[in-house]
Every structure is written in structure tokens, then in C-alpha cells.
Nucleic acid binder design. Structure first.
Lengths: 239, 239
DNA sequence: ATTTTCGCACCTAGGTGCGAATCT
DNA sequence: AGATTCGCACCTAGGTGCGAAAAT
């Protein structure tokens, strides 16, 4: 059957979308499983004067950008509960202790690839591993300033570099964390040690069977190389 | 005395320069003294399959850019003598041995800050320390491909990101080098070891006076911690 | 005979939590 | 008492030339 359309109805149609218009930008969290393991325990992030990385690292996969348009990608921290927290070792949980610090707008961590075309951002996961948190309110190293014992949620911002500078913002509940100067929940400590390669030194290795170990035949010839080392240790200890 | 000008002579004058036009871009070599010490001996750069950094690092100070205009900064290598070289240990000098490989156009090392505004490039020295040289003609890590035993001169290119894409190219005689897979001139080796922090392990330290060193009092108590280590070494050696 | 490759010990540079000391 | 700081040992990650072995 043939269909006919009135001129009016045709003119009333929305214009076809132009390429690059009304795109649906999507952002997916990387390492979501690891984030969830921390989240279920109550994620803590160490914060220091000189700046400390986050672990897990915030890293996202971005889709739906215009490959040839330029974008700036950045992260900031939203203080998601305006109160101060304290960890009750007794109850093994965080309890709020009154209103928190008045929160200034968070600094932005601009990803160093910015600005770059959509094709670049979508080619591979975008990692914010260089981002550091500090509790130094006077920091001038460009680190993100937070208040210890407060709760934050990272936000990823994708800004189109045209006249409109349209901003798209994404965040993930799994990445909530409380800023601390020292870990409170020892389960968090354990999970960090277990999963962060840089903390491998604190992992409890499986105890090896050392029954077969013997003093090597050449041990005597090796001793002279050891003496200065220990002598040095002693000398230092005496200072 | 009054001077008069004919209408014609006034019309024949060049128009006044507009801001941002006909700028005199200048590029200065960093660490020029170090480069000259190598150059006077005949600089050699190690080249490997997996890629090797240059030392000294090519680093330049850029001046005369338009602060708000965008530029791309890149480096390539010009093969400056189309012949193959050989080091005569006898005469302690490089001698040419016939025509070299036919040289394909060099790959470009694009500085990772590109594109950026003139203000950014002029703010601090622009270092190409991430650039790596390879002799693998099939390299797909984006390293700069060179022929061993050939002579090169790095070129710095500054490209204006406008319609014209004007390219300005700079190079420095002090940065000439011969690509090698192993150092030929032992004076070059010595100067590399002396000046490259990563080669500190090969420096001849001043021999310390160890007369004061003695076996520490607690040496016996420490021994158990050493035994497994050496036993391990021996076990490995026997495998 | 000359040139290249490869594993290695030894570095630089910097990211971990620990625990004693200190601050508030 | 709770929160923070700081030096430290122990890691990751990767840039050095060495020297034996291999390739050409």
C-alpha cells in the first residue's frame, strides 16, 4: 500500500541529526570489581601533605564522543556528606561526628592529554593515576585538596571544546571514599596490601620450607663483603 | 632640516607588521656545554632493538612564539653524511667506508605536549628525553629508526597550527652523533658514565678508608638471616 | 673480524604501609 | 585520645654499560 504525506507534515519533521550532534556520551568505570571490593568495606584513601595517589586508580572507558572534535577531560571530588566522620574501632564502622568543614569548590585535575580529539580519548582507557590527594590547604603543586575524615565521590567531566563548552559529568557510587591520614579499618589496609603492587613488601608470603637450606660452601669467601655492611649499620646506630 | 616624501615612496613602503606576524622564532640548545664535550670526542649514541634514549638529552629553550597561537613541536634525525662509518681503534678515529644505506625519511618524534600554545612552549625548556632510537626497521613502538654506523643531526621543528602550517626548523652542530650498537671510542664511554646519572653504577668511586670497619657485636645474631639468602644463591647456581 | 644481541648488576625515581614521634 | 607527620624498608618501573654469546 502506498502512503502519502502532506507537505505540512514533512516540513514539521525534525531535521535529520547532523553528525556529531546529540551524541550520547558514555563513561564506564575500569576495575569496577576491585572498586566494589573496597566499597563493600568502606573505601579509605590516604592523604598526605606532599600528595598521595588514589588506589584503586580512577580509570574510565569513554564512548560516544565525536572522533574529530576536541575535548578536555578532568576529575574533581564532590564532598558527598557535609559531615565529619570518625572510625569506631569498637563497632568496626564509621560514625558521623557533627557537621564537617565548609567545603570550597574542589580543584580540578585536568588529564594531561587535554585537549585531545574524541578519537584519542576513546582509543584506550583514560587513567587518572597521576592525580594526587593532599590535606595541605596551601598546596601549590596542583594536587586535589581534601579534608581528612570527610567523604568524597570523584566526578569525571568531559568538556566539548567548541563555543558552547558543553560539560558532561559522570560519577560512580563504587568510588566513594573517606579521606584519612592513616588507615582506620584494618581490612582496608589488608586489601590495599593485597592488591596494590607498590605495597607488595607488606604481603605475608607463604612460608617456604627452609629445611633444605644450608650454608653455602663458599660462605667464608663471601664474608668479607658482608662485614663492611654490618659495620656500617653499627656505626650509624651509634651516631 | 625638513624631509619630504613623495606619495609614491610612501605607498611603496611595506605595511607595518601586524602583531603575531613575521615573528622571529628562536631556539636555543640546553646543556650546550655537555653536548660540546661529547662533540669534541665524536658523539656516539647507543641504538637498540627495543629503543634507547639519547644522552645527553636533546632539550631546547624556545622564544619568539605567539603566546596564544597553537604549535606542534617535533624532532627528527637528518642523516648528514650518506656514508657508513667504522671506528679505527688504531688511529682512534672514525673513518668512512663507502656509501651508506639509502635513507628513508626519518620518523618524527612529536613532543607529547603538542599541540600547545606558544606561552606553554616558552614557559620552560622543552625536553625530548622520552625520544628513543632503534635499529629495528620494523619497529612499531613509534621510536626513531636509524642505521647503525651512520651519522645524524637532530632537527627541531616548530609548526604553527593555522591554515599555513608554517614550519620552522632548527638544528645544532653540537648534537651530531654516530649511531652505534656498542660504544667504539672509550672516551665517549667514560664521559657517558661520568655524566649520566643512570650509569652511576660504573663510576670509579674514590676508595674509602675501611680501616675503621669492624665486625659488629651482634653479627652472630644476624647470621641466621643471611644463611637462607646464600643458600638460595647456591641452589640457583646448581640448577 | 666486525657488529649485534641479550641477560645482568647497578643505578634513578618514586609509590607503599609501618611505627615512633609529634601535634591538637 | 585521636589525628597527623616523618623517616624508613621494601617495593615497582625502567634507564645504564658490561661482557659473553651470537649473528653476519
Amino acid at each position: 500500500m502506498n502512503r502519502s504525506f502532506s507537505i505540512d507534515s514533512i516540513l514539521a519533521r525534525k531535521p535529520k541529526r547532523k553528525i556529531g550532534e546529540d551524541r550520547l556520551i558514555r563513561v564506564f568505570l575500569q576495575s569496577a570489581n576491585l572498586w566494589r571490593r573496597f566499597h563493600s568495606l568502606g573505601t579509605e584513601m590516604i592523604v598526605t601533605k606532599s600528595g598521595r595517589r588514589m588506589f584503586p586508580t580512577l580509570s574510565v572507558i569513554i564512548a560516544g564522543l565525536d572522533p574529530v572534535k576536541n575535548y578536555v577531560v578532568m576529575v574533581d571530588l564532590e564532598c558527598i556528606e557535609l559531615k565529619r566522620f570518625r572510625y569506631s574501632f569498637h563497632q568496626s564502622k564509621w560514625i558521623s561526628t557533627g557537621p564537617g568543614e565548609s567545603e570550597l569548590p574542589s580543584r580540578m585535575f585536568v588529564h594531561s592529554d587535554s585537549p585531545a580529539r574524541g578519537a584519542h580519548w576513546m582509543r584506550s582507557p583514560v587513567s587518572f593515576d597521576k592525580m594526587k590527594l593532599t590535606n595541605n590547604q596551601l598546596d601549590n603543586n596542583g594536587h586535589i585538596i581534601v579534608n581528612s575524615m570527610h567523604k568524597y565521590r570523584p566526578r569525571v567531566h568531559v568538556i566539548e571544546q567548541d563555543e558552547a563548552k558543553t560539560r558532561h559529568t559522570f560519577s560512580f557510587e563504587e568510588t566513594d571514599f573517606i579521606a584519612v591520614t592513616a588507615y582506620q579499618n584494618h581490612r582496608i589496609t589488608s586489601l590495599k596490601i593485597e592488591s596494590n603492587p607498590f605495597a607488595k613488601g607488606f604481603r605475608e608470603c607463604e612460608v617456604q620450607d627452609m629445611a633444605h637450606l644450608q650454608v653455602p660452601a663458599n660462605f667464608q669467601s663471601v664474608l668479607p663483603f658482608i662485614f663492611p655492611y654490618f659495620a656500617n649499620l653499627t656505626a650509624n646506630a651509634e651516631q
